[in-house]
Write a protein that binds this DNA or RNA. Structure first.
Lengths: 220, 220
DNA sequence: GCAAACTCCTACATGCGAGTACGACTTGTA
DNA sequence: TACAAGTCGTACTCGCATGTAGGAGTTTGC
C-alpha cells in the first residue's frame, strides 16, 4: 500500500528565475543514487546525440542506462534536458579553458587556446547542433559567452599588437576559427583525419591566414 | 461522372534504373502546366527549406503555391522530393561552374571558381543539410561528383605547379574551402556580412592559408 | 530496520508528419 | 468543344515521439 507520488526530486531550472514556492522542500537535497543517475543521463545525452543527431528521449535514456521515466524525473522536457547537457558540457570545458594562459605572444597563445578548444568542440558539436534546433539562440549565446569572449579578447589583443592582420575584422577571424575547427571535427568523424593531428592541421590553415595579408594580386 | 484516377503523370525516378513497364505511357509527355508546377515545387523546396530546415511537405507545398496533393502527384515521397530538388540545384550550378575557366595561374583560377561556387553554396546549403539527413551519403556524393572533382583537380594542379603549399594534402585544402564558404554563408544569414563582400573575405582567408607555409615557429 | 526517496514497467493521451484515397472541379490540347 | 490530364480540398490511416499517470519494487540515509 502507500506510495503516492514518485520520480526524482527534479532540479532547479538552471536559471534560478521562476516559481520558487512549489518545490517539496529546498532543492539541493538529492539522494546519492539520484545524483549519480543525473550524471549518467547528462553523459548519455552527449553520446546518444553524437551517434544519432535526432535521438529520441527514449534513445537517450537507453544510452544512459536508465528508464525513460527516471529521465523525466530529472528533466521535465526534452529542451530542458538538452539545455542541461549542453550547459554541463560547457561548464566542464570552462574548467579546462580557464587554465590556458593567454599571456605572451598572441600567436602562441592562440595555438594553445585552439588546441584546447578543439577537443571540446570535437566532443560536443553534435550536441550543440541539436541544441540550436530546440533552444532559443539567445540561450546558446549566453552559454558560450565566456568561451567566446575569451577567444575574442585574444584575437583583439593580437590585432592591437600587430600579430594578426588588421585588414579583416576580429569577428571574421573568430568565425573562421570556428568553422575550421568544425571542419576538422567532421574530417575526424569521416575517418579521414587522425584526431591527434587535427590541431596541427587547424593551425596550419589559421596561422598563415591570420598573419599574412591578402595576396599581392589584390589591387586595393 | 467519370473521374477515376488522378494526380500528375509522375516523373521517372531520376536514376533510370527500376521498373519500366508500369507507367501509363512513355514518360516525358507532361502537360505544360504540370511542368510549370513541377518547377514551382522544386523552387519552393529550396526556399522553404531555407526558411525552416525541417519544413514539412505541407510547408513546402504552401511555399510553392500548390496543393499538397499536387506535390505528391509529382514526387511520391519526401526523400524523392529532396533528391529532385537537390539534383536540380546542382544541375543549374553545373551550368554556371562549367563555364569557369580553370586555365592559367592556379591561384587566379581558384579565385574564379570560389567566387562562382560561393553563390551556389549560399543558395542551397540548407537544402544540402536537409538532404544529408534523408538521403544516403553515397547519393549525395554522386551528385556532387562533378563539382567536387573540378575543384579537386584544380587544387591538385596548383599543388603540382607549386602554387599551393604541399605540406597539406589536397583533401584538407578542399575541406577548408568548403567550411570557409559555409562559414561565410552563415555570417550572411546572421546579417553580419554583406553577400557582396563574401568572396573577398573567403579569398582573404584561403589564399594566404594555401600559399604560405606554416608559421616559422613550427619546428618540424 | 523503516520511511522516504528513487527507479522503472505498463499503459495512456496527444500531436504531428507522411502517405493514401476519393472525388469534384479546372485547364491544356488535339 | 470534348476529353484527358492535372489540381486540390477533405478525410482518412499509420507510425512515432513527447509527456503523463499509477503503482510495485528497490535503495539510501538516518
Amino acid at each position: 500500500m502507500a506510495t503516492k507520488k514518485a520520480t526524482a526530486t527534479r532540479d532547479r531550472p538552471s536559471t534560478g528565475s521562476g516559481s520558487s514556492g512549489t518545490g517539496s522542500r529546498g532543492a539541493a537535497n538529492q539522494r546519492a543514487d539520484a545524483l549519480r543517475n543525473r550524471a549518467k543521463i547528462l553523459a548519455g545525452t552527449v553520446t546518444a546525440i553524437r551517434k544519432n543527431p535526432d535521438a529520441s528521449v527514449a534513445d537517450i535514456a537507453a544510452e544512459a542506462g536508465v528508464g525513460r521515466q527516471t529521465l523525466y524525473g530529472h528533466f521535465r522536457t526534452r529542451p530542458e534536458l538538452i539545455d542541461a547537457a549542453l550547459a554541463d558540457s560547457i561548464e566542464r570545458g570552462e574548467e579546462v579553458l580557464s587554465q590556458v594562459s593567454l599571456d605572451g605572444d598572441p600567436v602562441e597563445a592562440f595555438q594553445r587556446l585552439v588546441s584546447s578548444s578543439w577537443v571540446l568542440v570535437d566532443r560536443s558539436r553534435a550536441l550543440l547542433a541539436a541544441a540550436q534546433k530546440e533552444l532559443p539562440a539567445s540561450r546558446i549565446r549566453e552559454m558560450h559567452e565566456k568561451a567566446e569572449s575569451r577567444m575574442h579578447g585574444l584575437l583583439e589583443r593580437g590585432h592591437a599588437e600587430g600579430a594578426f592582420r588588421t585588414d579583416l575584422p576580429v569577428s571574421w577571424l573568430l568565425t573562421t576559427t570556428h568553422v575550421v575547427m568544425n571542419g576538422a571535427a567532421e574530417e575526424v568523424r569521416a575517418g579521414r583525419l587522425d584526431p591527434e593531428d587535427a590541431p596541427w592541421f587547424i593551425d596550419a590553415i589559421l596561422l598563415p591566414a591570420f598573419t599574412h595579408d591578402a595576396h599581392p594580386e589584390q589591387p586595393r
